[in-house]
Nucleic acid binder design. Structure first.
Lengths: 331, 331
DNA sequence: CTGAAAGCGCTAACAC
DNA sequence: GTGTTAGCGCTTTCAG
C-alpha cells in the first residue's frame, strides 16, 4: 500500500526497453512515433501486470497543456444546472478533455476563488456559468493565458452563450395573455423572481413588456417583483402583496416557483388551478402542477455544443450567441 | 498571452531572495520556516504585481500528497445527488481538499474508467456514490494506494455509509397503511421502482414487508414491481398492469415518481388524489403533488459528515454505517 | 524504430 | 532566517 508506485522506468526495465518508449506507448502517441506493435504489446502487458497508472500531474507539468477544462457552476439544486453539468462532462470527454466542475454557491467571492484555483491547476479553459461577475473571471484567466467562456450570463470580455431570454419570455407571456383572453380574465399579470441588476431578469422583463405592448396592453408596474431567486423571497413577497391579486403569474425560475407554489398551496389556490402561471426553466414535477400552462426549457445541449465549438475553434474574442428556448406547453 | 508564466524563480529574482523562500511563502508554510514577515511581504507584493499563480501540478508531483479528493456520482438529475455534490464540495473545502466530481451516468464501464482517471490524477481518496460495483472501484484504489469509501450503496471492501433504507421504507409503509385504514381502503399496496439486485431496493422491499408483517398483513407479491428506476419503465409497468389496481403506492425514488405521476395524470387520477402514495427520496415539487403522503428525505449532510470523519481518521477498513432518513409528511 | 538526456515548477533536506 | 540542490514522473528533442 505504501510502497512506491510503478513508474515508466520500472516498466522500461521490465519490458526491456527505454522510458521514452514506455512514455509514448502509455500516452497513446506510439503510433506516431512508429514504435513496433510488438514492443508496444510488451509494454502494455507489463503495465497491466503491475497495475501501472500514468501520473497525469507529471505529464501536465512537462507538456504545458493540461487537457483539463474547468466549469464554475452556481448550484446543483435544479434541473437546469444539473443538465449543464452533465452536458459539460459529456462534451468535455468527447473532446478528449478532463472536466472539473466547481460549485460557487452563488457567492461572488467563492466564484473568483474558484477561478484562481482552477488556474492553479493549469486548466486549458474555464467556462463560467451564471457568474455574478464574469468579466472579473475573464480577467483572471487572461492574466494566466487561460481561455474563458461565459455560459448563461453574458460578459463583455469573453465569448458568451446564453438563452434568448427576451424571446422566451415574450412567448411565455403570450401564452399567459392568450389563456386569460380565452378564459375571460381581464386583470393584470404578475412577474415574480430574479434580480433587476441581473442581465437575464432584465431581458425577461423586457420580453414580458414586449408581449403586452404587442397587443396594446400596459403591464402593471407594481406587479413586477424581481425579489431575488430564493423561494422564501418569493413567498414573502406574495404574502405581503399590497397591490390587487393578479390574474396570472410569470415565474422567473424553478427556484422561485418553489416559493410561489408554496404560497398557492397554503392559500388554497393550487389545487383549484385558480391562478394560472408559466415558468422560465423546466422541471418534470413542476410541469405537472395544476395551473401550469407552460415552461421555457433552455436548450442546454445546444448551448454546450456552441461553447465547445468556440473552444475548439480557439475562438476567444468577445461575442454573444443567443440560443432559442424550447417551449413545453401543458396540458 | 503566450509568454512564459511567472515561476518562483522569477519571483525570487524580483524579490531578491531564493526560490525556496518564495515556495514557502506561496505555499503558506513560511510561518513554520520562520521566514521574516518583511521578506514574506516583499514576496507577496511581487507575486501580486506579476499575477503569479502557483502551479499545483508541479507541487503535487513533488510532494506526493495531492490534496485532491474525487467523487464518482451517477447523475446530477435529482435533488438527492445534487445535495450530495454540494455537501461533498463544502466538506472537502473545509478539510482543505480540492473536490473533483465525475459523473458516470449509471454506466458500469464509465464508473471504472472514472476511477482509473481519478487515480491518474493522484487523488488522495475516492468516494464512490451509488456505484454499481463498488468493490471493483475499491480494488483499483487499493492497487494505487488510494483510500476509498462507498456512499449510498455499500461494498464489502471499503467503509460504506448509507441511509437506513429498511427502516425508512418501514416507516413510509406504515404511513401508507395507516392512511388506508383511516380512509377505509382495504386493498393491497404497490411497490414500484428500483432493481431487485440493487442493495437499496432489496432493503426497502424488506422494510415494506416488515411493515405488513408487523400488523399481520401479507403483501401482494404481484404488486411488487422493481422495474428499474427510469420514469419510462415505471410508466410502462403501470400501463401494462395485469393485477388489480392497488389502493396506494410506495414509490422507490423521485426518478421513478416521474413516471408514476405521468401515469396518474394521464389516467386522470392525479388531481383527484385518488391514489395516495409515498416516495423514497425528496423533491420540493414532488412534495406538493396531490396524493403525496410522505417522502423519505435522506440525511445528506449527516452522511457526508460521517464519510469525512472516516477520511480524516485514516480509517479504511470495511465497515457499514447506517444513517436514519428524515421523514417529511404531508399535508 | 529506439534510447539518452534535459528539463517542466515545485518542495524538502540540508547547509550556512 | 535564508540559500543550494536534488529530484518528483513524465515528455520531447535529438542522435543513432
Amino acid at each position: 500500500m505504501s510502497k512506491r508506485r510503478t513508474t515508466i522506468y520500472d516498466l522500461a526495465t521490465l519490458a526491456d526497453t527505454s522510458p521514452s518508449v514506455v512514455s509514448a506507448v502509455m500516452s497513446g502517441s506510439w503510433k506516431k512515433r512508429r514504435i513496433s506493435e510488438k514492443t508496444a504489446d510488451r509494454v502494455f502487458k507489463v503495465a497491466e501486470e503491475n497495475g501501472y497508472s500514468r501520473n497525469i500531474q507529471a505529464s501536465v507539468l512537462r507538456s504545458a497543456r493540461s487537457n483539463i477544462v474547468g466549469m464554475i457552476l452556481p448550484k446543483y439544486d435544479n434541473r437546469y444546472f444539473g443538465a449543464i453539468a452533465e452536458a459539460f462532462e459529456t462534451r468535455a470527454r468527447e473532446a478528449g478533455l478532463f472536466p472539473v466542475i466547481t460549485c460557487a454557491q452563488r457567492d461572488p467571492d467563492l466564484e473568483i476563488a474558484a477561478a484562481r484555483e482552477l488556474v492553479s491547476y493549469r486548466v486549458d479553459a474555464i467556462i463560467a456559468t451564471g457568474a455574478t461577475d464574469p468579466d472579473r473571471i475573464t480577467g483572471i484567466c487572461k492574466d494566466a493565458g487561460v481561455k474563458s467562456f461565459n455560459l448563461d450570463l453574458p460578459g463583455a470580455l469573453a465569448p458568451s452563450v446564453l438563452s434568448d431570454n427576451e424571446d422566451g419570455a415574450r412567448t411565455l407571456t403570450d401564452i399567459l395573455l392568450d389563456h386569460c383572453a380565452a378564459t375571460g380574465r381581464s386583470g393584470p399579470l404578475m412577474f415574480i423572481g430574479g434580480r433587476v441588476a441581473d442581465h437575464n431578469t432584465a431581458a425577461r422583463i423586457e420580453g414580458f413588456r414586449q408581449a403586452h405592448r404587442d397587443r396594446g396592453l400596459t403591464e402593471a408596474t407594481d406587479l413586477i417583483l424581481p425579489c431575488g431567486y430564493a423561494p422564501e423571497k418569493a413567498y414573502a413577497a406574495l404574502m405581503s402583496l399590497k397591490a390587487s391579486t393578479p390574474q396570472a403569474i410569470f415565474v422567473n425560475s424553478t427556484i422561485t416557483l418553489e416559493g410561489v407554489i408554496r404560497w398557492l398551496s397554503e392559500t388554497d389556490r393550487l389545487m383549484k388551478g385558480e391562478l394560472p402561471f408559466v415558468c422560465f426553466d423546466w422541471d418534470p414535477f413542476g410541469a405537472l402542477l395544476p395551473g401550469n400552462l407552460a415552461m421555457a426549457r433552455q436548450d442546454v445541449p445546444k448551448m454546450m455544443s456552441v461553447v465547445f465549438d468556440l473552444l475548439s475553434e480557439e475562438q476567444n474574442t468577445p461575442s454573444k450567441v443567443l440560443v432559442p428556448c424550447l417551449m413545453e406547453r401543458f396540458p
